[in-house]
Simulated scan of single mutants.
Amino acid sequence: MRPEMQKFLFVLGSSRAGGNTETLARKAAEYLPEGAQQRWIWLEDVPLAPFRDTRQDRVPHPLQEGNEQLLLDATLEATDIVIASPLYWYSVSATAKQYLDYWSGWLHIPGLQFKASMREKTLWGVSAAEEDDMFSALVDTLHKSANYLKMRWGGVLLGHGHHPGEVVDDAPAMEAAKDFFQSVYAK
């Protein structure tokens, strides 16, 4: 079931702007349902401090401020979260992984009810790489994250390209982008 007002948060995890993954994500965004809101955040623009897990110290996650607060607010406001990360060493980029690490801290903020909030959302992925057989760890990372938080799983839109701009020559990916964000709600 589609939410009344969809708010898509696109989290760009590339180390360079305008790469193949972002190009593919922007192509898919052209076909979002009418009235859907979009917010794009490039993680390079909002760097996070290294994540520190304080659970074993029995210390609550520190108060959020700055870029962490911005990302937390954007995450909670969204109905749909799109992790757009190129394939780096067979999984998501370091900045995308760090963003997901922060979810661990947000789970333990008293009164936030992060896990319950995430249950209402859909998690999507977009990625590009040179070869087909390398995406399994990236897909597993995102899919298992969605399962753990009991989020709807939208799937991952995959494209091929090594050099900037090559993904536009991947006709099957460009075609798949047209229906990608409809898939989970068509069921």
Score class of each variant (00 low, 15 high):
Val82Ala: 05
Gly165Phe: 02
Ala171Gly: 08
Tyr90Met: 04
Lys27Ser: 02
Met151Ala: 09
Glu120Cys: 00
Gly155Gln: 01
Leu43Cys: 01
Gly13Glu: 05
His160Leu: 09
Glu77Asn: 05
His143Tyr: 13
Gln6Asp: 15
Asp140Cys: 02
Glu175Ser: 10
Gly18Leu: 08
Asn67Ala: 00
Ala186Ser: 11
Ser183Pro: 06
Met134Arg: 02
Leu71Trp: 00
Tyr148Phe: 10
His160Asn: 02
Ala25Lys: 06
Glu77Gly: 04
Trp124Met: 08
Leu71Gln: 02
Gly155Trp: 05
Val82Cys: 05
His163Ile: 15
Ala28Phe: 12
Gly111Ser: 01
His162Tyr: 03
Glu175Leu: 12
Gly105Trp: 09
Gly13Trp: 05
Gly13Arg: 03
Leu48Asp: 00
Asp80His: 02
Ala94Val: 13
Glu68Gln: 00
Ala74Trp: 14
Trp42Ile: 05
Glu34Trp: 04
Gly105Asn: 09
Trp124Ser: 06
Arg39Cys: 15
Ile109Trp: 11
Leu43Trp: 01
Glu166Trp: 04
Ile41Cys: 10
Glu4Asn: 10
Thr75Ile: 11
Ala28Pro: 09
Pro50Val: 12
Gly154Tyr: 06
Tyr102Ala: 09
Gly13Ala: 15
Ser104Arg: 02
Arg119Asn: 01
Gly154Leu: 06
Val92Arg: 04
Gly105Tyr: 00
Tyr102Lys: 08
Lys27Trp: 04
Ser183Gly: 07
Glu68Asp: 11
Ala177Pro: 07
Met1Thr: 15
Gly155Lys: 07
Leu107Met: 14
Leu71Gly: 03
Gly35Glu: 11
His163Gln: 14
Thr122Glu: 13
Arg55Glu: 02
Ser91Gln: 03
Ala128Lys: 01
Lys144Val: 01
Leu100Gly: 00
Gly165Ala: 09
Glu175Cys: 13
Gly154Ile: 07
Thr141Pro: 01
Asp80Ser: 06
Thr75Asn: 13
Leu158Ala: 07
Glu77Val: 00
Leu87His: 11
Pro50Trp: 02
Thr122Ile: 02
Val92Glu: 00
Asn67His: 06
Lys178Gly: 10
Tyr102Thr: 10
Tyr99Ser: 04
Glu120Asp: 14
Trp40Phe: 14
Lys144Tyr: 05
Gln6Pro: 15
Gly125Lys: 03
Arg55Gln: 07
Thr54Trp: 08
Gly154Thr: 07
Arg26Gly: 13
Gln64Thr: 14
Glu130Arg: 03
Tyr88Asp: 03
Leu112Asn: 14
Val92Ala: 11
Thr122Ala: 10
Ala74Phe: 08
Pro110Trp: 00
Lys27Ala: 04
Gly66Phe: 13
Tyr148Gln: 15
Leu76Ser: 01
Val168Gln: 06
Val92Asn: 12
Trp153Ser: 03
Thr23Met: 12
Val156Cys: 13
Ser14Asp: 10
Gly105Gln: 01
Pro172Ser: 08
Met118His: 05
Asp101Met: 07
Asp133Trp: 08
Ala96Ser: 04
Trp40Cys: 15
Val11His: 04
Gln56Thr: 05
Gly111Leu: 08
Ser93His: 01
Leu9Thr: 14
